[in-house]
Amino acid sequence: MMGKRSLSLLFGFISQPSIAVDLGTANTRIYTSLHGEVTERPSSISLTTDKTNTISDEYIQYINNKLAAKPLRGGVIVDLKNAVALLKPLVKKSRRFLSAPLSLASAPTDTTENERNLLCTALMNAGASQVAIIPEVWAAAIGAGMDITRPNAQLLIDIGDGVTDMAIFRDGRIINSSSVRIACSDLQRAVRSAVMTKYKVQIYDTDTEKLTNLISSLSRNQECGSETFNVSGIDIVKRCKIDRCIHKTDVIKAMEPVIDKIIVKIEFSLKKLPQKTYSEIEDSGICLTGGGACIEGMDKLIAARTGIRVQIAPDPIHAVINGAIQTLTNWNGNKYWWENIVWPKLSS
């Protein structure tokens, strides 16, 4: 449950919100009411001070330019120092004279109290004066346009970069939640690893993202045959840039185990639900948010495996930050609504 201290902080500044924060594994987004805009940047700190092309080995040059500290893993902070370094310049933009900003942040439902405290500490050290934290799926549901006050159960699945989080809403409350710290970054890592192992090519990030869209073949049970794709990257043997033709089957085989873990978690969580709740979800369907919702075929694959209709939210990547913004601006002084925000007990 959200602590009394966190609630009292929230009551204290809800009438004059300052910033809403979506600190994600891949990207960080901060909204400031001072400017009325969202600032977005990768959740990483470059460790390369000199990016001049003085290195003759193109592979080493590529790796050198990509060296970066990533302070989040699985949706939570694992490196406080670099998390503060990431947040500080973003928080600084929201300051008004000497007044430190007030912050509303969100976190996955499976986070421990210690992990949420670490998020609070990072924001405070970055320059926030006070911090309140709500479940990320709550913000995603608001940002997706769900009416979570409805008396019938509704299911939202948020597939981010580091965690897949699902929650069931009824009567303005989260009545059930489940999560697994496997998501988009694991899919991309599996693809990169498979291509490097077989083809000895470190493919570029843009091509990695394109290849993850081959999930659509899984949802249609397509035969891959000898279909191939051209990708660009660095040949780790010849140490130079190269275009390489790779087989679709290799990519599909790499992604299947990751996808299966995500889908099995969803199926298992659904099977544990009371029949009444399950039936209501069958009627209302599943709302899909996060970067995973943008992977072509992900919605159809989940629908095929669960037998439940899946709808992708409008602007799914920004559902969390959009919901956090609405939370700050649309719910002034509604004490009952804030009391409904709790940290649910996770399904085992």
Rank of each mutant, 00 (worst) to 15 (best):
F268G: 03
K272I: 09
E282T: 00
T277F: 13
T277R: 08
D299M: 09
A293K: 00
I259Q: 04
I295N: 08
T306A: 12
Y278L: 14
G291T: 09
L270I: 06
I281S: 06
A313E: 10
I259R: 00
G307V: 10
V258T: 12
L301T: 08
Y278D: 02
A303Q: 15
A313H: 04
E282A: 06
S269R: 01
G297V: 01
K272W: 05
Y278W: 10
K276S: 14
K272R: 14
A293V: 09
E296M: 10
C294D: 04
I263T: 13
F268Y: 12
E267N: 12
C287A: 08
K265D: 11
I302D: 05
G290E: 07
E280T: 00
I295Q: 12
E296F: 14
I263Y: 10
L301I: 12
E282G: 00
E296V: 07
I266F: 06
R305T: 05
G285P: 02
D283N: 04
E296G: 00
G291A: 08
I295L: 15
F268A: 14
S279D: 15
Y278V: 00
I302Q: 07
L270D: 05
C287G: 00
I312L: 02
Y278E: 03
R305N: 12
G290D: 10
G307I: 09
L270Y: 04
I286A: 05
A293Y: 06
G291E: 11
I266W: 05
V310R: 03
Q311M: 10
T306P: 06
E267T: 09
I259N: 05
Q311E: 12
A293R: 00
G307L: 10
D299C: 11
K261A: 14
M298C: 07
S269G: 06
Q275W: 08
I286N: 03
D260I: 02
E282Y: 07
A304T: 11
A304E: 13
D299Y: 05
L301K: 07
K276P: 01
Q275D: 13
I262F: 01
I266P: 03
I263A: 14
S284C: 11
D260K: 11
Y278C: 03
F268L: 12
E282D: 01
G291S: 05
K300W: 04
I281Y: 03
C287H: 01
P314L: 09
G285L: 07
S269Q: 06
M298V: 05
V258I: 15
G297D: 13
C294F: 01
F268H: 10
S279F: 11
K300H: 10
D283G: 00
I308M: 07
I308A: 09
P274F: 08
G297R: 10
G297Y: 10
